[in-house]
Amino acid sequence: MDERSNIIFEDRFTVSDVDKDGKKFDRVSRIVATSRELNMHLTLDIASELYPVAEGEAFALAVVRSLTPDQDAKDAAADENGDGADDEGNRKVRRELWRAPDQGLANDYDYVMHGKIYKFDDSQKGDNMTTAYFSFGGLLMALRGSYRHLANVVVGENVYLLMRK
């Protein structure tokens, strides 16, 4: 069974710049933010019509593996049985989470995106900093900071980005 935590990264950020190089797309803004506690630097493309942010605003950001953290353990147990059934022998019924009445972690956040970790760059080992790159359907994110805060990042893994003000 997978013993990894569902949460890959979470912290609070303050926006320092919005579209500092000019607005390239009508409905997308690129924000630059710095975390309050972990000294992380974030560059994120965001759908500005859906979730507008302004310079100086603070928001919470989380990157998670699943929107249903307790479901992962049940799925792993069913997969160990090899038949798609849970421990009691009942067949699992998988539904898309956005159709379910309880949307898990998405209920607690204002803005949710699904994407993939596509690159992990630790080439600047001298300053003990690394950068993880994410793609959310063409909206990109770069998260830069200490390696120990990005230790749970696995290239190729599907993730959810969750934000709230």
Score class of each variant (00 low, 15 high):
144 R>T: 15
79 D>Q: 14
138 G>M: 09
18 V>P: 00
27 R>V: 13
144 R>Q: 10
21 D>A: 11
86 D>R: 07
155 V>M: 10
150 L>F: 09
54 A>P: 03
77 A>P: 00
28 V>S: 04
160 Y>F: 15
131 T>Q: 04
14 T>C: 01
65 R>C: 05
152 N>Y: 10
13 F>E: 05
133 Y>V: 01
138 G>D: 11
114 H>S: 12
92 K>V: 14
164 R>F: 02
68 T>C: 14
59 F>L: 00
164 R>D: 01
78 A>K: 07
46 I>H: 05
90 N>G: 08
143 L>T: 04
56 G>L: 03
92 K>E: 10
143 L>Q: 08
84 G>T: 02
110 D>P: 01
108 D>Q: 09
116 K>I: 10
19 D>R: 03
75 D>P: 06
62 A>R: 07
35 S>A: 07
86 D>S: 11
154 V>H: 03
121 D>C: 12
29 S>T: 13
56 G>D: 10
42 L>C: 02
152 N>V: 07
96 E>W: 11
136 F>L: 04
27 R>Y: 15
58 A>L: 04
125 K>R: 15
70 D>F: 10
42 L>S: 02
64 V>R: 04
161 L>K: 06
118 Y>I: 09
68 T>D: 14
159 V>G: 02
107 N>P: 00
16 S>M: 02
50 L>N: 09
26 D>V: 08
15 V>G: 08
57 E>Y: 04
35 S>Q: 08
125 K>I: 11
81 N>K: 13
59 F>N: 00
58 A>T: 04
4 R>M: 12
126 G>D: 13
48 S>K: 07
41 H>A: 07
48 S>Q: 12
114 H>P: 05
34 T>V: 09
93 V>A: 03
113 M>G: 01
158 N>K: 12
38 L>W: 00
38 L>I: 05
41 H>R: 09
89 G>R: 11
8 I>W: 02
164 R>V: 00
151 A>N: 15
32 V>P: 04
71 Q>H: 12
121 D>V: 10
16 S>R: 13
32 V>W: 09
141 M>D: 03
118 Y>L: 03
125 K>N: 15
15 V>E: 00
99 R>P: 00
98 W>N: 11
118 Y>G: 02
28 V>Y: 00
78 A>R: 08
98 W>V: 11
34 T>Y: 14
18 V>T: 07
157 E>I: 07
53 V>N: 00
125 K>T: 15
65 R>A: 01
80 E>G: 00
142 A>G: 08
90 N>E: 14
130 T>Q: 10
165 K>R: 15
106 A>Q: 08
150 L>M: 07
60 A>H: 05
124 Q>L: 12
112 V>C: 02
22 G>A: 09
93 V>L: 05
150 L>Y: 03
119 K>E: 04
6 N>Q: 00
20 K>T: 01
90 N>Q: 15
